[in-house]
Design a protein around this nucleic acid. Sequence first.
DNA 1: GCTTATTGATTAGCATCCTAACTAATGGAG
DNA 2: CTCCATTAGTTAGGATGCTAATCAATAAGC
Lengths: 150, 150
Amino acid sequence: MFFLKDLPTRQMLQRYGACYPGMNTEAVAAALNLLRRGSLLMRELEAYFTAHALSQTRFLVLIVIDREPDREGLLASEIADRLDVSRPVVTDTVKALAAAGLLDSVPAVEDGRAKRITLTARGQAVLADLLPGYFAIIGAFMARTDGPGA
Amino acid sequence: MFFLKDLPTRQMLQRYGACYPGMNTEAVAAALNLLRRGSLLMRELEAYFTAHALSQTRFLVLIVIDREPDREGLLASEIADRLDVSRPVVTDTVKALAAAGLLDSVPAVEDGRAKRITLTARGQAVLADLLPGYFAIIGAFMARTDGPGA
DNA sequence: GCTTATTGATTAGCATCCTAACTAATGGAG
DNA sequence: CTCCATTAGTTAGGATGCTAATCAATAAGC
């Protein structure tokens, strides 16, 4: 998360640019906007998930499993591959979601080390319940911040 | 941080949109791009700071103090105001930066509760050292991802 | 002037991320 | 077949964020 509330003005950046000749003022201004906007949206989404006893990461775990319905569930390592989080995070997240009844985790028959992780009916229902609000928050945020002030 | 590596295609979003009538497909696609790009840049910047014994947040603390040279340092609560992090985070961050010799923290004369936090000469030097690399990472990232594929 | 509310900062406890090290199962080389 | 490298998953320990509760100093009410 990028926590700076008031981004430097173009003027301030140009002053920096004078000191650091290689710097692309426009690119930096755009990047700081990207970071700040992304962080603000992230905060809103995290609050939404927290209010529903989830988190961004837990939600994304549900999503990536739901996204491949032809597969008979995913392995933990496959989830980690699709999600740019470390394996231990997948272990903990899956454990929490299974405890909440949203995922099932059964040993894989073809590989004694692996586990097949699937959505339960309840997991699918929770996902379907959350998506409209998720899209609504995103839509409202973009409408609010996509203008000239952004 | 937004961890989903492969964003949903427009086609997948449109299928979702069919199920959830209120959804603005274009806005959602743009928002997911915003989140993912922001997270990728954040990762690069965090790696840069980690390699220099700092973190994004510690760096921003240095920045906000440096940004107001006319003030005789900032109070911890003023740092928290400018930085959208909780007070305890400021307490810990300032403590760590002071231990590293980058900040000074002296009791405020006009208010027995408060502390005036200033950059040391070393803190200013570290900041000046880090900025060129920071801007370079941002510039490279934007050049790489700002194109049509982004 | 004394009591109470507010404010600056910290502490305590929790959540979630990471890397490094570990266990257990698989699979390939000889 | 046996040994060893690889792979799946977990555990352990550390960093960093949060909220709620606490302590101390200031400010405000009567």
